[in-house]
């Protein structure tokens, strides 16, 4: 035993820290890695979901705009036809 009442560490061993043992630290690291993976996966799913949602509305918006352009062109053709008699 040394001055701090902790066992002396060999070169290939962890130095024990009071209140934390190796197993707890490793468990915590495993949980943190698992939580990080879950959060990353969740964000990936969210980005896909929101991306699909906005894309669908954007595509439908473009379709509406194209339809309105077509209708406007049709009105112009009809007007020309009427003017020509």
């Amino acid at each position: 035993m040394n001055e701090t009442n902790l066992p002396a560490a060999n070169d290939d061993e962890y130095v024990a820290v009071e209140g934390l043992d190796t197993r707890s630290i490793e468990c915590e690291a495993i949980f943190e890695a698992k939580a990080a993976r879950k959060t990353a996966s969740d964000y990936e799913h969210i980005v896909w979901a929101y991306g699909v949602l906005w894309s669908l509305f954007a595509i439908y918006g473009v379709m509406l705009w194209r339809r309105s352009q077509r209708l406007r062109a049709d009105v112009d053709r009809l007007r020309t036809r009427i003017d020509q008699g």
């Binding site: 879950k38 959060t39 969740d42 799913h45 969210i46 929101y50």
Partner: peptide, 11 residues
């Protein structure tokens, strides 16, 4: 459910 539950607000 975690963070992915935020899809709920638009789904």
């Amino acid at each position: 459910l975690g963070t992915v539950q935020k899809i709920f607000y638009f789904h």
